[in-house]
Design a protein around this nucleic acid. Structure first.
Length: 307
DNA sequence: CGCGCTCGTGAATTCACCTC
DNA sequence: GAGGTGAATTCACGAGCGCG
């Protein structure tokens, strides 16, 4: 895991990366608590199979803002290179932000996988690495360490490159899980899906109804007994306000003050009825959509076993 | 600590569908 | 057609989470 500190060698590595089609990237930030945090390290991996770390370059960019600019210009903004991060929005904030193209976030991928298929207490990278890829002895101690100091400790550099390995491995597993979960609709086996649904429905109804009942009782009990904290729950409240104005007043204001305010209003059935024939004077824009819905058939009559 | 999200909550609306 | 019902949708808001 080459640790590069010279601007010239970092530049040449960045130049090499422009040929890659996908890169796994992590960053370390110095002074994250302060008002102006700085980019300390950029760790890049270009081969997800690599577990040794040989293919990871740890780029020390703390004192090279112009090298960072080059990285942004050649890699981050380049739509031809897919960039994989965990919680991408955090790292990308320091790397081109909104201008970054072709970003993949493993945190978002993980969250999209339904809970039953990936039952985890949280979606931190270390949790995913441990549960999804069975990495042992994952250390996150260095995460909060001082990334602004130089030289960095052995442990810090070790930690920095390990994160990239976790990232690439987790990413691969998430892709696999995704394929299992979100299968091709055209080739799904409807019979087995229906069977599984029916099998779960009864259990689910029992659980769901008791669950809802418990929630309601606990809430009401805590309210009645003036308890804001119980062993499992916190009870909080908030003010909610909706600002309203008569439509005629708003319309008049916009007219008289010549305010630039125009947007489509949904004419609900009630409004259409209230307008009556006046509706014909308006140039309405009719949007047609199709809504599909699943309706369970009545299963209890087992007489209709027709095919 | 702080940013930038997403998510859960509960009320209000809307609408399809059913019955009378 | 009136009226009821349940599902879906919308909205304001705060809680909570991930990163270092």
């Amino acid at each position: 895991m080459p640790y590069l500190t010279l601007a010239s060698e970092i530049r040449s590595v960045v130049a090499e990366y422009t040929k890659a089609s996908i890169l796994w990237i992590d960053t370390e930030i110095a002074d994250y608590k302060s008002r102006n945090p700085r980019l300390s390290l950029i760790q890049v991996l270009d081969d997800p199979q690599d577990l040794s770390g040989d293919r990871i370059f740890v780029l020390d960019v703390l004192n090279y803002p112009d090298v960072v600019a080059e990285f942004i210009d050649k890699i981050m903004v380049n739509a031809n290179i897919e960039k994989v991060f965990h919680n991408a929005s955090f790292d990308v904030k320091f790397l081109a932000n909104k201008k970054a193209k072709n970003i993949t976030c493993t945190l978002e991928m993980a969250k999209k996988i339904p809970y039953y298929a990936l039952p985890l207490p949280n979606y931190q990278l270390k949790t995913l690495a441990a549960e999804l890829c069975h990495f042992k002895n994952i250390d996150k101690q260095e995460q909060g360490s001082d990334w602004g100091r130089r030289p960095l400790s052995e442990e810090q550099i070790e930690y920095a490159y390990l994160d990239c390995i976790y990232l690439a491995q987790v990413h691969q597993r998430l892709i696999e899980l995704n394929q299992e979960i979100h299968s091709e609709p055209a080739t799904e086996n409807l019979t087995s899906l229906n069977a599984r649904y029916a099998q779960l429905e009864q259990q689910w109804k029992l659980l769901d109804s008791e669950f809802a009942n418990l929630q309601e009782r606990i809430k009401k009990a805590m309210l009645a007994q003036n308890v804001t904290e119980s062993s499992y729950f916190k009870l909080s409240c908030y003010e909610r306000k909706t600002v309203k104005v008569p439509f005629t007043q708003l319309a008049k204001l916009v007219q008289t003050e010549d305010i630039d305010l125009d947007f489509p209003i949904t004419l609900t059935q009630k409004l259409q009825k209230d307008l009556g024939e006046n509706l014909e004077q308006l140039s309405v824009d009719i949007e047609q959509t199709t809504a599909w819905r699943l309706t369970p058939k009545n299963q209890e009559s087992d007489e209709n076993s027709d095919d």
